[in-house]
């Protein structure tokens, strides 16, 4: 399942607390549109650069990148100091 929401909490001493709930689904829709638009160009570039050894990489980098994005769900990064606290959670 692709990640749909990113929670980000930032707290700094003597400053306002920031709580951000970012709907990642918007980015994925935008990315999908860009990838579809670019796919013919990528295909041509892959064919041209195939003899140089970059063709396979160009063809596979898109799907593999999508796999990485899809696997982000469940990632937690939490850093807490004496003055500040950062919490990022990808749901």
């Amino acid at each position: 399942m692709i990640p749909i929401l990113m929670k980000m909490h930032i707290r700094e001493k003597d400053k306002n607390k920031i709580k951000l709930y970012f709907p990642l689904i918007c980015i994925w829709i935008l990315m999908a549109a860009v990838m579809i638009a670019l796919s013919p160009l990528i295909l041509i570039a892959a064919l041209i650069s195939w003899p140089l050894g970059y063709g396979r990489s160009l063809l596979l980098i898109g799907p593999r990148l999508l796999t990485v994005i899809g696997a982000l769900s469940g990632l937690v990064v939490q850093v807490e100091g004496s003055d500040e606290k950062v919490y990022i959670y990808i749901k």
Partner: peptide, 25 residues
């Protein structure tokens, strides 16, 4: 500082797969 990082195993798998398509040079 306290640090707490949780990385999904499937992200590691996907990362290794992504690294495998990096050109040889």
């Amino acid at each position: 500082e306290k640090v707490n990082i949780r990385v999904p195993m499937k992200l590691l798998r996907a990362g290794i797969k992504l690294a495998s398509v990096v050109p040889v040079d």
